[in-house]
Amino acid sequence: MENNNVEILLIEDNKNDAELAIRAFRKANLNNHLIHLKNGVEALEFLFGTGKFDVRDISKKPKVILLDLKMPKLNGLEVLAQIKANEQTKAIPVVVLTSSKEHPDIKRAYALGANSYIVKPVEFDDFSKVVTDLGFYWLLKNQPHV
């Protein structure tokens, strides 16, 4: 898939969760413009056109970023802070996906400008539904900033 035509940017270090999410998007026919990046460093390189994404046209922005919080190196909150602190990227909706509603960082995520905070359900059908719903909402219902 071409890096300049991305609608969903999935930032997720757990390959199982990523596979389940991608499957759910595929079942809803929402996976055509999805890119999965495995950590925060890659994600920022993609968004700011640096590192291995230095040829990418960064004016082409994803319609939604799905961001896992617990990641090695640069964690989700750090990635979120950088996205929301940058004029180029701060209007992109960021949906924080996490395994736990116990997360002490829910407040921090919202304070940093997260647009939504979603707990990944254990039950696969529920998980599929959540992923599909948020795909439909941000890709089809939501009117983007630009």
């Binding site: 199982n16 395994s99 736990s100 116990e102």
Partner: peptide, 25 residues
Amino acid sequence: LESFSYSVSHDLRTPLRAINGYAKM
């Protein structure tokens, strides 16, 4: 305890979701 709760919640739910998801797949 709070950080333990968080770990339990996060770390146990993630593999569970995988078990469940792959069984469903």
